[in-house]
Every structure is written in structure tokens, then in C-alpha cells.
Amino acid sequence: MARDSTFVVISPNGKRLLTLFFAIFLIILYLPTVLLILFSFNDSTVATFPLVGFTTKWYGLAIHSEEIRLSLLASLRVGLISAFIATLLALMAAYPLARRNVRGRPLISAMLLVPLVVPTVVLGVALLILFQKGAIPIGLGLESVMIGHVIIALPFALLILLPRIASIDKRLEEAAYDLGATGLQTFRIILLPLITPSIISAFLISFVFSIDEVVIASFLAGDQATYPVYLYSGLKFPEKTQTLIPVATVMIVLSFLFAIGAEMIRRYGDRRLQGR
């Protein structure tokens, strides 16, 4: 008797029920996003039901808003620079941790990963004290936000890069050394091409994190708002909200594309490694 391959894990009725559950789950999961897209075209100043009429005027307003443009540029700058620094630092730390005998490895690993669990509000206020009253009095502004984002993005980037470097056959590098390559040459010619997809994916994750981060940014941005900070302050005032929705919609669609792009690059890297 040919049994359904899922027979052992679930009864046919259970499977139907679970499929229904999954369908409802997906609908609820995407409902908020769909609603935002709907309201971005709704001809009303408040985002409430029933929908009034179709308009693209909010998009027009958003495009011409100087505040939105500046905050988006600020976010872009903070995101790109902090993602670059975080990826670079993570790469530099990941290499010795994956390849060399590092003394005190548990302590170093713990210190590198602990920012993952530190509540962002705690890191935010701690950096606020450091920048305003502490030994590094650079004050508030986009540079301060960048530093905060580097600290949080670092462990994410490390968690992507370290396992990848560790998974690459050590003998490839040893062969290069035996043939007389220097450390830097070996890295550039052997390792770098193999881990490029992971580097890109670490960069994208750090970037996506940074352009959506609001807690640290709201403590450290001072009067130079990043886009999430601008959005956050706008969401607290219902009358300002409607102009924010169009940009929000565009941002959501873009970050979907980013996420999918990062994942596809990561999988491409996996396939390429397996193909060897």
C-alpha cells in the first residue's frame, strides 16, 4: 500500500487542519502590510475605515517633503557606513576566531555576542551618557547613531561570517601557503572569493537592521532625525501620520526585496560551496 509520505507525522485530517491554520496565519501575517498599501492610496487624512477614495496625492506630498528627504538621506548614510564598519570589523574578528588558536576564546566570543541580548534601551542610554558626559564627548548626531548601530550589527555579521569561514576547507589555504603565498595573498585569492556571498549578506543584514532601528537612534540622533526617528515621532501624532504612509509603503516593499536579495545571495553561496 502506498502511504502518503507525511503519513507518519500527521493524519490526513490533521494535515487539512494544519493547512487551514497555515493559510490563516499567512493572511494575518501579511494583513498589516496590505492595509498600509491600501491606506497609502486612501483619500482621507486619517487611516480609518471605511476607505474613502483613490488618490496618489500622499505620494506627491511625500516626494516633495524636505523633512522626509533629509531623514531618508540621513538613514541611508548611517545605514551604509555602519553596515560597512560592522562587516569589516566582523570579518577581521571572524578570521582569527575561525582559523587560529585564540587564547581566551570563550571570553572573546561572549563579549562579541553579548550586545545581541543587551536591551537596546539600555545601550541607548549608556551611549547617551558616554557621548554627553563621558570620556568620548562627541555629543549627539548621526555619527553617534552610527556607532550604536555598529555595536548591535557586529554580532549579526559575525554570526553569518564565522560559520562560513569555519566551513571552508583549511587545506586550500595551506596549499597556498606551501606554494609561497603571503597571508594577505592567501586571503585575497583563496578565501575572499569563497566568502564574498556571506560578506554581502552580512552587510545587507546590518544595513537592514540599521535603517529600521529606532530606539538607539532616538536617544542619540539629537536634532538630526533618521527616517525611523522621524516616523516614530510622526506616528505619535495622528494628523501627521497620513503623509508618512506612502514612504513607509515604499520602504516596506524595498526591504522585502532586500531581504529576498540577501537570502538569494546566501543560497547562491551555499550552492557554490557544495558544488565544489
Binding site: 501575517l29 498589516p32 498600509l36 506616528l235
Partner: peptide, 17 residues
């Protein structure tokens, strides 16, 4: 994927719901 989209906006959308 929704986890990677704007947290603020997902919160805001719940206000609408």
C-alpha cells in the same frame, strides 16, 4: 520576510486594525 520589514510600520498597521 515580514520580520525584516519596518517594525514601526507593522506596529502602526495594528493600530489601523
Amino acid at each position: 520576510a515580514p520580520f525584516l520589514t519596518s517594525y514601526l510600520l507593522r506596529v502602526f498597521a495594528w493600530k489601523v486594525i
